Computed example of a mutant assay.
Amino acid sequence: MNNSREIKAVFLDRDGTICGDDTVHYPGKFKLFPFTQELISNLKKDGIKVFSFTNQPGISAGKAATHDYVEELTAFGFDDIFICPHHPSKGCFCRKPNTGMLQTAAEKHKLSLENCVVIGDRWSDMLAASTAGCVKILVKTGAGHAALNEHFDKINDIELEYIAENLEDAVDWLYQEYKIT
């Protein structure tokens, strides 16, 4: 673990991480965990950029529109939103576990991904973070238990920095481990 890193940005997965369970909840039906908005605000107040990065194949299936996600996530306080709208069969560069969204954000915001944290509930979040060189925090909410049990073979070679009970626990650990003030 390299806690001498200076954390510049946190990438938060949407479904299962900032609220919800292991299913997709479309904009308008998505309610944050009670502590999520305050955590986003605190990170930003402490000089950390907070980005949403999310796979949303329902967009390409016509079940939702990109602008609805962007509007919702912007209202939650995110500094920027990165969405993969593609179906998994498309083999795009942006869909997690690929690193396209992370790389696009790094270029756009002039960040080194080594100084970024990914907090998510799925194996694909952790694999993308690992490939990009980010700090990796898996939350047990959403699909987190499945990532640790049913999909462990996909992440067993990844050294996770922390496994958190939920987003609040993840951010608390981040503040303690990396001395964010």
Score class of each variant (00 low, 15 high):
Asn156Ala: 13
Ser124Lys: 07
Leu148Trp: 05
Gly77Thr: 12
Pro88Asn: 07
Asn115Ser: 14
Ala64His: 04
Leu138Arg: 04
Ala64Trp: 01
Tyr162Trp: 01
Tyr162Lys: 05
Phe78Asp: 01
His151Ala: 06
Gly58Arg: 08
Ile81Pro: 03
Ala164Leu: 01
Leu73Lys: 11
Leu138Asn: 02
Leu174Thr: 07
Lys96Glu: 00
Leu148Ile: 14
Phe53Gln: 04
Ala128Thr: 04
Val171Pro: 00
Val139Ser: 11
Ser52Trp: 05
Ala129Cys: 10
Ile119Cys: 06
Ala65Gly: 02
Ser124Tyr: 10
Lys179Arg: 13
Glu168Lys: 13
Lys136Pro: 03
Thr141Asn: 10
Tyr175Pro: 00
Asp157Lys: 15
Thr131Met: 09
Ala164Trp: 03
Glu165Ile: 09
Cys94Ile: 11
Thr74His: 08
Gln176Trp: 08
Glu71Ser: 15
Lys90Ile: 09
Tyr175Phe: 15
Lys136Met: 06
Cys116Ile: 05
Leu174Tyr: 11
Leu111Gln: 09
Gly144Pro: 07
Asn55Ile: 02
Ser60Gln: 14
Pro97Lys: 13
Val139Lys: 05
Cys84His: 00
Ile81Lys: 00
Met126Ile: 14
Asn149Glu: 15
Asp79Pro: 01
Val70Thr: 14
Thr66Phe: 07
Cys134Tyr: 01
Thr99Lys: 02
Phe78Asn: 06
Leu174Lys: 07
Asp125Leu: 04
Cys94His: 09
Ser60Trp: 04
His86Cys: 12
His151Gln: 11
Ser52Pro: 00
Asn156Tyr: 13
Ala164Ile: 06
Asp80His: 07
Glu107Ile: 06
Ala128Asn: 02
Ala170Cys: 06
Ile155Pro: 03
Pro57Ala: 06
Phe51Pro: 02
Val117Tyr: 08
Lys154Arg: 15
Ile119His: 00
Leu102Ala: 11
Gly120Met: 03
His86Met: 09
Tyr178Asn: 00
Ala143Glu: 12
Asp125Glu: 08
Glu114Ala: 14
Leu138Met: 11
Asn115His: 12
Gly120His: 05
Ala61Met: 13
Ala132Ile: 04
Lys63His: 14
Lys140Asn: 13
His87Pro: 07
Val70Gln: 10
Leu138Trp: 00
Tyr175Ser: 01
Asp157His: 15
Lys110Met: 12
Ala146Gly: 09
Gly62Leu: 11
Gln176Ser: 13
Ile59Trp: 03
Glu161Ala: 01
